[in-house]
């Protein structure tokens, strides 16, 4: 599996996700600077966590308009797999690749701890090493993870089975306890928790590893 990780000014989980991808797939991802205009030919594009552009204006707002994003969006529209973690999820909603928005946590605090997620729909290239209903422990670390979408969008997400992960104990006020969603064709996944920080017991959990194993088996 060939992958690319987009690096924005202020990304800080780009190397973590690169290590996770390399450990599980044996192939080093290509790191692509946000100012570049063309992506290499890859099977997976990852938008990593962090605080791109210092979260100025809105989390992910500037990054969503970076030069490389035109290619990222065009490629995603062709149904090619795209993964956004944390700030990457915020960027995906800012570009419209995923519906809704991530707002300030309802408790107003930055939340940095392990949370339990329920795998809601494991029928995607990102998740099919999991089973529906699995409970997994993955860390979150965010200030703006409060998922919001209007009522129609929310019911469409539920009806189409686009909710990938749900919090068991909602840390941020997200509607319907949403921690991660797919686009309609399940070729784009955005989630606030960090699977790349849970790829081995020495990190406290290896529950995130199956996401990378799913990707490698499918791509």
């Amino acid at each position: 599996m060939k992958s690319a990780v987009i690096v924005f000014p202020g990304s800080n989980c780009d190397r973590d996700v690169a290590v996770a991808l390399e450990q599980v797939s044996g192939q080093k991802p290509t790191m692509v600077w946000h100012g570049d205009s063309a992506l290499p030919e890859v099977d997976l594009v990852v938008l990593p966590g962090g605080f791109s552009f210092g979260d100025y204006l809105r989390s992910g707002a500037m990054a969503g308009r970076s030069p490389i994003m035109k290619d990222v969006v065009d490629r995603a529209h062709k149904g090619k797999p795209t993964l956004g973690i944390c700030n990457g999820f915020q960027i995906l909603t800012e570009t419209g690749l995923l519906p809704g928005a991530l707002m300030r946590n309802a408790g107003l605090k930055f939340v940095c701890r392990s949370v339990t997620l329920k795998v809601e729909h494991a029928n995607s290239a990102f998740t099919n090493a999991y089973t529906n209903g699995d409970l997994i422990d993955i860390p979150v670390a965010h200030h703006d993870g409060n998922y919001f979408a209007d009522a129609d969008t929310l019911s469409a997400l539920e009806d189409n089975g686009q909710v990938a992960f749900r919090y068991q104990d909602n840390p941020n006020g997200s509607l319907n306890d949403i921690a991660g969603i797919y686009n309609e064709s399940r070729s784009v996944l955005g989630l606030m928790p960090h699977p790349e920080r849970a790829i081995g017991d020495e990190l406290g959990s290896s529950d995130g590893r199956k996401m990378f194993e799913s990707l490698i088996a499918n791509l």
């Binding site: 809105r58 308009r65 909603t93 519906p99 809704g100 928005a101 707002m103 919001f148 979408a149």
Partner: peptide, 9 residues
């Protein structure tokens, strides 16, 4: 529409 506001919210 393109940057200053996120018209979803």
């Amino acid at each position: 529409e393109k940057l200053l506001a996120n018209t979803v919210i």
